[in-house]
Design a protein around this nucleic acid. Structure first.
Length: 549
DNA sequence: TCGCATAAAATGAGAATGGA
DNA sequence: TCCATTCTCATTTTATGCGA
């Protein structure tokens, strides 16, 4: 059948796109007015990347001293990243549109038979991609092709703490170069968007765009509580209050002098809270320009992390609220309200007070104090309630029982512990192929002692003058965390049994000090393991609820 | 599930600016 | 003056939401 040849051709084309190095489209240099840039040949880009990758793979395979997991880690880091699977679907959609424009709806449409297609359906492409992924593995399961999928997460407390200890908050030696550390003589703290917006995002959970367009009169007192009206429309200042959300300003911002800062703005006749951030010309949005600036700054401050980007700051509040043991309904209402998705846009004055109390209960360990050099309160330090983070990978047998566990340090990605459970059919592919088998009970015992060690070690790092009593308390604290961890692992299996295809957030109550990120992969579906964010990943946080189930 | 839309991040370029 | 940093913009890449 001639059409099937066409379908194969479109598969070939998509496969080629799939092999494109991630950055190829951005290296043409035509990103400013009147720029000629340079012509790039996609096939050439692919074969260059292929050649480099092949050489790297060969070199690494020859290193006999390296363990297989170490080899993999190096490959994942050093292979040229290609376009992501998700983006390929976007490309497929575009190809589909092109063909439909050319051939009409009868030849290209969603109801065309699979066999008669010119461009594959999503389902067909998914299936085909499975084979492509298989072909991109060496015989020992090492990857020959990698991509850099974005995993959206919330900022860890360490990250927040590092931000709060940066020159943005502790002071810079120059008013313009904010990344320069303050010196004994020169110390400037500039309270503009760069200063306030990250704080507002982590304490109030609003989007940058919403806060950036706030006007001075949007900050008002209501029932004795200082509040902010936020709206997501342009000309927000012209909209009536009825159509906009009202959020209480958390205590920590008040302690930092937010009210006085706004009053000063108002006195000097300012209209906007953040006049330095103007809408950009092409889209009329402020978040673009703000994001660019903050990203630039984070880059020089070495605060950037592909897993924890600016937008992820907002999620920090959500996960902290979960960690506080706030029940599902309330939390969803708060977050819904914070995110502007709920119908009940208005809180009564009493509700506002309640909401403020909730926001205030989230503790980022910010110490506010005064300094002779400044007329306003400043951050003098952070007491980080340390939150050790572990990435947990769990493989399930086809009976959906836990068959293998791998714990990795979230910061270093170092494997802390891995084991398969004896008597269960564990996956034989990477990363499970190197695991030794242990009895279920031993696995649990080992995890317990490990988590203990990690937490205690981390805490000992911080507390220079810790007493034996402190250590006893740490141990007691760690024990709850472990129980939570085990509970979590059990929950993963349970949740998975119930709902195989949804992203889940699972938690155990009242264990705020250990953050567990977990990924579940199916022993019998190597393809699924590559779709960490959609089909088969479960991010676990400690908290009282199972979300999105 | 598919088709389409959108938000935001990422990248690279050049110009402007800051500081020593 | 030199070099690093910052700012801005065009453009690509990534993930996700919504409605049929």
């Amino acid at each position: 059948m001639p059409t099937s040849i066409v379908l194969e051709q479109s598969f070939d084309f998509l496969h080629m796109v799939w092999m494109l190095p991630k950055g190829w489209g951005k290296s043409h240099g035509r990103n400013r007015h009147g720029q000629d840039g340079r012509k790039l040949c996609p096939r050439q880009e692919i074969s260059d990347a292929d050649a480099k990758d092949a050489a790297l793979l060969e070199g690494i395979m020859r290193l006999d001293t390296l363990s297989v997991p170490d080899k993999r880690r190096r490959l994942v880091q050093e292979l040229a990243p290609r376009l992501t699977d998700g983006y390929l679907f976007v490309q497929r959609d575009m190809l589909n549109r092109i063909f439909r424009a050319a051939l009409g709806r009868r030849r290209v449409g969603r109801d065309v038979d699979e066999d008669d297609r010119v461009v594959s359906s999503h389902a067909q492409l998914k299936g085909r991609m499975q084979n492509w992924h298989k072909a991109q593995k060496t015989s020992c399961g090492l990857p020959k092709r990698v991509s850099r999928a974005k995993r959206l997460m919330s900022w860890s407390l360490e990250h927040v703490s590092r931000l709060l200890r940066s020159p943005i908050y502790l002071g810079s030696s120059s008013q313009k170069l904010r990344s320069r550390k303050a010196t004994a003589r020169k110390r400037y703290i500039i309270r503009d968007a760069i200063y306030w917006v990250p704080l507002i995002m982590i304490t109030m959970g609003v989007r940058p765009e919403e806060i950036l367009q706030a006007a001075v009169p949007d900050v008002v007192r209501r029932g004795g509580i200082l509040c902010l009206f936020v709206g997501d429309e342009e000309d927000a200042v012209l909209k009536n209050e009825q159509s906009r959300r009202v959020l209480p300003i958390p205590q920590i911002l008040l302690d930092l002098g937010f009210r006085e800062w706004v009053v000063a703005k108002s006195r000097s006749g300012e209209t906007w809270l953040f006049p330095d951030i103007q809408p950009d010309r092409p889209h009329g949005r402020r978040s673009q320009i703000f994001g660019d600036r903050l990203r630039n700054l984070f880059k020089t401050l070495k605060l950037q992390d592909p897993r924890e980007d600016i937008y992820a700051m907002r999620r920090t509040l959500s996960s902290k609220l979960m960690g506080l043991g706030i029940d599902t309904g309330t939390r969803q209402r708060i977050l819904g309200h914070l995110e502007g998705t709920t119908v009940d846009k208005h809180y009564s004055d009493h509700g506002l007070l309640e909401l403020k109390d909730l926001l205030d209960s989230v503790d980022y360990g910010i110490d506010v104090g005064h300094d002779r050099g400044f007329a306003f309160p400043i951050i003098v330090g952070t007491r980080t309630a340390l939150q050790a983070a572990l990435d947990v990978d769990v493989a399930l047998s086809d009976q959906r029982e836990v068959s293998a566990v791998q714990l990795r340090d979230a910061e270093t990605d170092e494997i802390v512990f891995e084991a398969t459970i004896s008597g269960r059919k564990a996956p034989s592919t990477f990363p499970w192929n190197e695991c030794g088998a242990l009895e279920e009970k031993d696995v649990a015992a080992r995890i317990i002692s490990l988590v203990d060690d990690i937490l205690v070690l981390r805490d000992l790092h911080l507390e220079a003058g810790a007493t034996p009593e402190d250590i006893r308390q740490l141990l007691a604290h760690a024990r709850t965390a472990i129980e939570g961890l085990l509970h979590c692992v059990r929950q993963i299996a349970q949740a998975w049994r119930a709902h195989r295809s949804q992203t889940t957030e699972i938690g155990a109550n009242s264990v705020p000090s250990l953050q567990v990120r977990a990924k579940v992969s199916y022993a019998y579906s190597p393809f699924a393991a590559n779709h960490s964010t959609t089909a088969c990943a479960a991010w676990l946080r400690f908290g009282p609820r199972i979300a999105n189930m």
